[in-house]
Design a protein around this nucleic acid. Sequence first.
DNA 1: ACTTGATCGTTTCAGCTGAAACAAACTGAC
DNA 2: GTCAGTTTGTTTCAGCTGAAACGATCAAGT
Lengths: 165, 165
Amino acid sequence: MASGERLPSGAMDIHAEAEPLRLEGFLPYRLNMLATEVSQTLARAYGRKFGISIPEWRVLATLGQFGVMTARDIGGHSRMHKTTVSRAVAALEKRRLIVRRANRADMREAFLALTDAGTAIYHEIVPMARAFSDSLCAGLSETELRQMNTLIDKLAERVASLGNG
Amino acid sequence: MASGERLPSGAMDIHAEAEPLRLEGFLPYRLNMLATEVSQTLARAYGRKFGISIPEWRVLATLGQFGVMTARDIGGHSRMHKTTVSRAVAALEKRRLIVRRANRADMREAFLALTDAGTAIYHEIVPMARAFSDSLCAGLSETELRQMNTLIDKLAERVASLGNG
DNA sequence: ACTTGATCGTTTCAGCTGAAACAAACTGAC
DNA sequence: GTCAGTTTGTTTCAGCTGAAACGATCAAGT
């Protein structure tokens, strides 16, 4: 554009060429960076110590919390793909950390539960995970922690409606 | 344990067997769920429309923001693995959305920049991404948005120190 | 009982990811 | 100039992921 032209300030720029997006200030990007870093840091900790992958930890954690469940229920609660659950369950069963019992009332599914060895590992990982989370939140006040949880809830609700609706 | 035994309430349980971890109230898990959902919802939007993957979008976004950069700079800024950058750059170059110009002062690296076609797609995706983000944040007040950003900053700083230190 | 359609879980397959190995190019010490 | 060590970027390879196909089972209707 000729330098002598006079325009209502910024009027043209807005329509001809949008402002570039500052990635480092973009909420979806920031959220993803943070979550990835948090997830991987924790996963490295229990991965090194117990040879457990993220999906395997989630299966352990779900069974540790709820006791007996089917693979379907585990996937539903921890939002894992059924193939991911299937493979994590197979790996954990092979290592005898969980057992599979038939459901006579419905032979398609099976009841899964922690073995003693699985329970033992679960009770080693849980304090480690809690310590990590506590240490992560150590810089936050009680109020900020409540805020964070409220905000996550609001955003989760919001994104769910955006995805479906 | 024999049912008749009398114990100080809960004294043994606390040490013998930790409380099960409620996954749905566990911050690392909650953060990861939210970020995954947000990321994938946005990625589906521009993926369907332009056939662009997440790493490709990040390369486009970084070049759109900064103009000319090397692959190394892109990786550094967007925290992508160098192999991921390499492949995204190759794909975008093949589709003529970016160009590679030699750096005569250092022939190992190359200057990357958006082509006109790349700039055009960038300027189509940016408003879409902004609209998504705005819609995501629509349920949040101005104050809550500031809080969210502050909290993400604090947690990011915290997790970085936990990972390294 | 038979058929249809749905559901649970596994397997197959294609694509993505990152660690490691690698080639090419640069830097600094000698 | 040459050598050793570093840096940039690509390729290879092994592992993970999810869509699709599949087998097995169940439920409902006829």
